[in-house]
Amino acid sequence: MKNDFIGCKTKGLYGDSLQMMKQRDWVAVSRLILSGQCVELSKGAPVYRTGASITGLVKIRARGQTSEWWTGAEQVTN
């Protein structure tokens, strides 16, 4: 991973979280994370790509975890 970033259960939620971050609505972002709909993932965490979309998003799974999250492809290094 390149930087600390967010991953969400759906592509739509990921887009919503980006909009909230652009608006600097950190309370709303925190609520998404606390609800379990999104997670904050750490720089350097090993992940596996499990899917991709034509919109530049990738689905990832952190090593040792069973949950998958959508995030921006630019966040994941090869």
Rank of each mutant, 00 (worst) to 15 (best):
K2S: 11
D4T: 14
D4V: 12
I6D: 04
I6P: 02
G7T: 01
G7E: 00
C8W: 08
C8H: 08
C8E: 10
K9P: 00
K9G: 01
K9M: 01
K11F: 06
K11G: 04
G12D: 13
L13A: 12
L13F: 10
L13C: 03
Y14H: 14
Y14Q: 12
G15M: 13
S17K: 00
S17E: 08
Q19T: 07
Q19K: 03
M20H: 07
M20R: 10
M20A: 14
M21F: 04
M21Q: 09
K22D: 11
R24Y: 04
D25M: 05
W26I: 05
W26C: 01
W26T: 06
W26S: 02
W26R: 03
W26Q: 03
V27T: 13
A28D: 13
A28Q: 14
A28F: 14
V29G: 04
V29A: 02
S30D: 15
S30Y: 15
S30I: 08
R31L: 09
R31F: 04
L34H: 08
L34W: 07
S35N: 12
S35W: 04
S35I: 06
S35Q: 05
S35R: 09
G36P: 01
Q37S: 07
Q37F: 03
V39H: 07
L41D: 00
S42Q: 15
K43M: 05
G44L: 01
G44P: 00
G44D: 01
G44H: 00
A45C: 03
A45T: 08
P46V: 11
V47W: 12
Y48F: 15
R49C: 12
R49M: 10
R49E: 14
T50N: 07
T50A: 03
T50H: 04
G51W: 09
G51K: 03
G51D: 09
I54C: 13
I54A: 15
T55K: 13
T55Y: 10
G56R: 06
L57G: 00
V58N: 05
V58P: 03
V58W: 10
V58G: 06
I60R: 09
R61P: 14
A62N: 02
A62P: 05
A62F: 05
R63V: 12
R63T: 13
G64L: 14
G64H: 14
T66F: 09
S67V: 06
S67I: 01
E68P: 03
E68K: 11
E68V: 11
W69G: 02
W69Y: 10
W69Q: 00
W70S: 08
T71I: 08
T71L: 09
T71E: 04
G72N: 12
G72C: 11
E74W: 13
E74C: 08
Q75W: 12
Q75S: 15
V76H: 00
V76Q: 03
T77R: 10
T77D: 10
T77C: 04
